[in-house]
């Protein structure tokens, strides 16, 4: 009889312990998916980097503007120089001046002999493709872009008017030569990364080349 009693006791102990453990286990398992994925940290890091970069740019801009304001009060020639220098910078942003500098050249052409498929959506370059390319280049720090000699400015459209593409209401035809001034490495890397735009274009069948240049010239926007 006493032997049986201790056995029951130990079984009770064991089951109680197991119940406790089950509860702990359940809570732990429940919490795991609630943890913040490392992706979020990565995303925030990228955003932080970008905000800091913009802040540095703003600091440069503040110094520049403060200097120009000081020049204004110094004398006639200084004031004229300061205003002209600001004018030059703004006109450059507006795309009204021809600019030179290092950058990349992307040449995009339709697939040879009609491509792999017969579907026209897949066998020739559409406005969406050029829009995506230009967007990617701005995103990776391009300072000026042109396509077949057409400067891309704030109001520039890239629009399919089959079978041609209109840019700045001017008809352009393939091969599309896209020039971008900016850091050649960061722009080329952004385009050529695995799963990036260049790979996508090649998969569709387009002919793509990306070339870095030390000295490119991008024409001014020709006002109409």
């Amino acid at each position: 009889m006493p032997k049986k009693n201790t056995a029951y006791l130990s079984i009770m102990l064991v089951t109680a312990f197991m119940g406790l453990m089950l509860a702990v286990q359940f809570r732990a398992a429940n919490r795991a998916p609630g943890g913040i994925p490392t992706d979020r940290a990565k995303e925030m890091m990228t955003e932080l980097k970008q905000v800091n970069h913009e802040r540095d740019n703003l600091t440069k801009e503040i110094n520049d503007l403060t200097y120009k304001l000081n020049q204004l009060n110094k004398g006639r020639t200084e004031a004229l120089n300061a205003l002209n220098s600001e004018l030059g910078k703004v006109r450059m942003l507006a795309g009204l001046v021809t600019v030179t500098g290092p950058g990349i050249e992307v040449v995009l052409d339709n697939p040879e002999n009609g491509g792999k498929t017969t579907s026209p959506e897949l066998s020739f370059i559409q406005d969406q493709d050029l829009l995506g390319l230009v967007n990617e280049l701005w995103g990776s720090g391009a300072e000026a872009i042109s396509i077949n000699g057409q400067r891309i400015i704030a109001t520039t459209e890239i629009r399919l008017a089959a079978p041609f593409i209109n840019i700045n209401t001017t008809r352009v035809v393939p091969p599309y030569q896209v020039l971008a001034i900016g850091s050649p490495d960061s722009m080329a890397n952004a385009l050529e990364l695995p799963g990036g735009l260049v790979e996508y274009y090649r998969d569709i069948g387009f002919q793509v080349t990306v070339e870095k240049h030390d000295d490119l010239t991008i024409p001014a926007y020709a006002a109409r």
Binding site: T59, K60, E61, K89, V97, V99
Partner: peptide, 12 residues
């Protein structure tokens, strides 16, 4: 209202 900074492009 961002900064206008050109590190690479120069007027020709």
């Amino acid at each position: 209202s961002g900064g206008l900074v050109f590190d690479y492009a120069k007027p020709s």
